[in-house]
Structure formats: C-alpha cells, structure tokens
Simulated assay, not measured.
Amino acid sequence: MNSDTNEGKWKQIKGEFKEELGKITNNESTEAEGSFDKLVGKIQEKYGETREKIEKEIKSW
C-alpha cells in the first residue's frame, strides 16, 4: 500500500464529512465538493495515482 492509496482513503472520509455537512447546512456547493472528494479518493485508493493527476483527468471529462 503506498501513500497515495492511504491519501485516497482519507480523501473519502473527508469527502463524506463535507457531503453530510452540506446536507445539514443546506449548502449545495459544500455537498458537491464532498462528492467530488469522495470520487477522487476512491480512484486514488484503487489506482494509487496522485490527487493532482486524477483531478486533472476528471476535469478533462
């Protein structure tokens, strides 16, 4: 397990928290950020790539 995989797991936890905070505060922007963080975290955990590389790839979609 490399550091990018561990960072991916942390990113997922942080994303879930942001998503829930957005729901509680009725802030759609925070909720969307949380969903994005979770997505990046899952990809990062699975493939062990850097966050920057994954975010760049997702934004190119």
Rank of each mutant, 00 (worst) to 15 (best):
M1H: 11
M1C: 07
M1N: 11
N2R: 03
S3N: 12
N6V: 13
N6K: 15
G8K: 00
G8W: 00
G8T: 01
G8A: 01
K9S: 08
K9Y: 10
K9N: 09
W10G: 04
W10M: 12
K11W: 04
K11Y: 06
K11L: 12
K11H: 08
Q12T: 09
Q12L: 05
Q12A: 08
I13A: 10
K14V: 13
K14M: 11
G15N: 01
K18M: 12
K18L: 14
L21C: 10
L21D: 04
G22R: 02
K23H: 05
I24V: 15
T25C: 06
T25A: 09
N27E: 05
N27Y: 02
N27V: 05
E28L: 12
S29C: 09
T30R: 06
A32T: 13
A32P: 04
E33L: 13
E33V: 04
G34A: 09
G34V: 02
S35A: 15
S35G: 14
F36W: 12
V40D: 00
V40I: 15
G41F: 00
K42A: 11
I43C: 02
I43Q: 03
E45M: 06
E45R: 10
E45S: 10
E45Y: 05
E45V: 02
K46W: 03
K46P: 01
G48Y: 00
R51E: 14
R51I: 01
K53W: 03
I54M: 00
K56R: 13
K56E: 13
K56I: 07
I58G: 03
K59Q: 12
K59H: 07
K59N: 11
S60N: 10
S60A: 11
W61P: 02
